[in-house]
Design a protein around this nucleic acid. Structure first.
Lengths: 389, 389
DNA sequence: CTGTTAGCGCCTTCAG
DNA sequence: CTGAAGGCGCTAACAG
């Protein structure tokens, strides 16, 4: 890896397979010129009669002529007219540990389903990697940017779907735009914020947050903590709007009763363990927590459990995503949470790229999907307590 | 999708990007013939002086000459000599829902890590899909076989890693062998049995099973149920040997004390719920269960819990894989299980394909990795009980 | 050491 | 409707 720029890789190897069928081979069997075969197989009805097309196609199929094996020649020929052809491959950028989070993996499944159905391959790339090798010397890319596989430069990829923090991904996207032979590369961006110049598929964080807050307020809770990332985090900012809206609609002052717990890193567990005790001490009247996602909710449950608080008797928890499952001894899901249609998001994203690719028209519309609340056993009306912890 | 064979896809589109740099462009700037540039960039020291190579390379890099953008031309030229070149893409075949199982996703992560590190892309394909579109007319493939993406026929893939039931995958492999332009396609097969003609990376099921059985027997258990798939299932068959060995070494007759519970489908939950009650009734003296994997173990726990048996007081459970986690209210892992080095398996498999690809030499060795037992809280010495359930 | 030439397999344009 | 010719960008063989 890490070949210097411009140097050609001479690591070819000899192919020991049988002969590949060419247009000339088919032409010989048909008794026509190979150009006629080319025209026939491309369905050029203006220059070849229907019967000839049928006859030639049949023979070609019988001989096992496979146009995709000659894409190199076709691509070369088409390059004269600045044309390129479809590869039926979509690039997908996901965070390195995405399969660990069942939320991401569902998204991926949705994407994969549609791509497969439509006959597209999926070329996987991590948005960044701690284990990446040393950068090429001239590289100005920040360390959290991914290396783009050579398949993109080759023009082997028709479009892409990315799930990443927009700020981090901007560099990658910029380089992609340089690398990829079309100005407007079909691309769809998922979830973590709106990336200008891309189609975006998002969920309605505000609405989901609103539902969660309404649920707690209607149960009788007033003093609620919510987990968030620092200001500027798209998701957190959107959700705050939803929480606030719920409070205001019910005439409760969010300034007095709704308090953020700001998480710093993505290392969920230690982060929560660090930030939470302080928050609980500062707001001992708290009776419920709005988690950033289900995993956080589960960690919170451990935290409370270890500190002698029962959920939901002493404190209620609402998750977000409806992905990771916290189950009781009977295998029943426990967490009240905001359901996010991950599978649907993946499917829509894939459909959208494919549409762009096939219609060779890049659109930049933003799709926002609604969420809904799933009430389970982690929330209950608040109970009077004399002190917390 | 589902274009008839032999028909050429004319869905090209015009590229609106800037001009791509060619060897001729570089040659013009260098004041030499473009063939000299070609030689220089390929490091042909026999025909170009060191200084010229350095000079030309520098200018090429400065001009942004990118050999991978001209792979079509290179491939075409090389095809005259039956040579092909590296794409730096490895195909990966996984079951459709693999990310749901944290076991598979860890494997995937191991593969991805190494491929990324080595500068390879990963082309994902499902080994089968219930949602696949109607087959091409002439297709004799069984419905559980996957469609091979056109990238393979194009020669865009250098090698592959597959995780699948060998019997199901044989068809896919056969078609791949036809499609792929080399007789010996570098391929590595994972876990679910030995596929002849491929390198295999497996775990030592027998040894792992032996460890699990020894653990239970040494705790004092005698009458043990084990979950398995029908005879012929590679994994189950291997493990039975390990269980049996443990019994025999301790002078206990497995015929009398070790009983299989045969699962039929892959629908874990209902399958267990159906097969298990009968088994427990037939062998009421049972004090421990050896599960097929961690997920099964977790389902068993639900089953016992719903039927008034406590784990491990009333009955012990040992899992397999150390993947899915069953945690208590404090977030501690509970399941005693056989740890399988999934990450390592993925890494080794990836390293092996890459080695084959780079050395253009297909090897067929089988690598078997050891496992170890992780003792947690789901096993304990047996207690006398008067009746089961 | 350098330049010339002949393809690789296909597509387009132009002449029949 | 069909065939012939030129060229896409590159590489390998051959001539200087």
């Amino acid at each position: 890896m890490a070949r210097p720029t411009g140097i050609i890789d001479t690591n070819h190897y000899r192919v020991t397979g049988k002969q590949v069928v060419t247009l000339k081979d088919v032409a010989a069997r048909c008794g026509v010129h190979f150009v006629t075969v080319s025209r026939a197989l491309r369905g050029d009805t203006r220059n070849v009669s229907q019967e000839e097309i049928a006859r030639i196609s049949a023979i070609a199929a019988e001989m096992g002529y496979d146009p995709s094996r000659q894409q190199a020649a076709r691509r070369l020929a088409l390059s004269k007219r600045d044309e390129t052809l479809l590869n039926h491959v979509i690039g997908v950028f996901f965070p390195p540990n995405f399969m660990a989070a069942s939320y991401f993996s569902t998204l991926f499944q949705g994407i994969m389903e549609v791509l497969e159905w439509e006959g597209f391959g999926l070329l996987m790339t991590h948005t960044y990697s701690p284990r990446l090798p040393s950068r090429p010397p001239g590289s100005s890319a920040p360390p959290d940017t991914c290396l783009i596989p050579p398949a993109y430069a080759r023009g082997d990829v028709d479009g892409m779907i990315a799930l990443a923090n927009p700020r981090l991904f901007e560099h990658t996207l910029a380089r992609l735009q340089q690398t990829v032979p079309i100005e407007n590369f079909p691309s769809v961006f998922l979830l973590t914020g709106i990336l200008p110049g891309c189609a975006n598929v998002l969920i309605d964080n505000q609405q989901g947050a609103y539902l969660a807050a309404v649920h707690l307020l209607d149960l009788g809770h007033r003093d609620i903590l919510f987990l968030r990332y620092p200001e500027g985090d798209y998701t957190s900012d959107q959700r705050l709007k939803g929480y606030t809206q719920a409070y205001q609609e019910r005439g409760i002052n969010p300034q007095l009763h709704l308090h953020p717990v700001v998480l710093q890193s993505k290392e969920t567990m230690p982060d929560i363990m660090e930030a939470f005790p302080t928050a609980m001490r500062n707001h001992p009247e708290t009776t419920a927590v709005l988690a950033y996602n289900d995993r956080h909710a589960i960690y919170l449950n451990y935290y409370f459990s270890n500190n002698g608080l029962r959920v939901p008797e002493d404190i209620s928890i609402v998750g977000f995503d409806d992905s990771d499952s916290w189950v009781n001894a009977q295998g029943e899901k426990m967490l009240t949470t905001v359901h996010v249609p991950s599978l649907e998001i993946g499917r829509i994203a894939a459909q959208e790229v494919i549409r762009m690719v096939q219609e060779r028209m890049v659109t930049r519309q933003t799709t926002i999907l609604p969420t809904h609340l799933v009430v389970r056993a982690s929330t209950a009306p608040p109970r009077l307590r004399t002190s917390m912890l």
